[in-house]
């Protein structure tokens, strides 16, 4: 039955082929609609919606914490804390469009509070996994591996605000407006922070 439905779906798709751009727009619209409906249910205090929010975002928030330099255990704790805080402050969520920025802002604040409480603690370096690319020759691979490791180290050593900007925009893929919302600053300020961060990172490769 499911297979039939799938085939019918495929046929329908081939009968009305969508361009890559149209498909992207449709998916974006769908995800926007989904987020709007999720936000409305969250604001109404729907516990199932809270569970859906967790499923949708917990991996992102955990990675966000890791990329900000928290250890595995602390990242787990802060991820939990972020969702509990989000639930408590659900009334502050404006609409679906603001969902990303709002949740990351809560997570950023949880991280900031942690660093404040543990002022002496050193942020952990960004853990990496091996980069395999079969199209490259051995010396190319080594050079690239070195570059990536240097960049990883440079990001980890950035001052917290600059690191947060890089992580939000380039690693968590938030738009400028969402990332600015998450950082709690205006878009212009965020862009200049991002530029300063890139400038510093570029210096490591001169």
């Amino acid at each position: 039955m499911e297979k039939k439905a799938e085939t019918a779906e495929q046929k329908a798709e081939s009968a009305h082929p969508l361009s890559e751009q149209q498909r992207g727009e449709t998916e974006q619209e769908y995800s926007q609609q989904r987020r709007s409906s999720l936000a409305a249910r969250l604001r109404a205090g729907d516990h199932e919606a809270a569970a859906e929010l967790v499923d949708l975002y917990y991996e992102h928030i955990y990675l966000f914490m890791r990329r900000l330099g928290h250890s595995r255990q602390v990242s787990e704790d802060l991820t939990q804390e972020s969702f509990l805080q989000a639930w408590r402050h659900i009334a502050q969520l404006r609409d679906g469009k603001a969902l990303n920025g709002w949740l990351y802002r809560i997570a950023s604040n949880a991280s900031k509070l942690y660093w404040r409480k543990h002022a002496g603690g050193e942020p952990a370096s960004l853990d990496g996994i091996d980069v395999a690319d079969d199209t490259q020759t051995a010396p190319d691979k080594v050079a690239r591996y070195e570059q990536i490791n240097r960049l990883r180290g440079a990001v980890a050593r950035l001052p917290m605000k600059l690191k947060q900007a890089v992580v939000l925009h380039y690693m968590q893929h938030l738009s400028i407006s969402e990332a600015a919302e998450a950082a709690g600053i205006r878009e212009g300020t965020f862009k200049s922070r991002l530029n300063r961060a890139l400038k510093r990172l570029r210096k490591h490769f001169t």
């Binding site: 967790v54 917990y58 990675l63 990329r67 787990e76 509990l84 960004l126 091996d130 990001v155």
Partner: peptide, 25 residues
């Protein structure tokens, strides 16, 4: 390069973390 760093940085979230969080809400 930042994209590559992103793709190769950070371990996946521990399995069951989402369920732990949901239980606490």
């Amino acid at each position: 390069l930042l994209n590559t760093v992103t793709d190769t940085t950070g371990d996946p979230a521990p399995s069951g973390l989402n369920e732990d969080i949901k239980r606490q809400i």
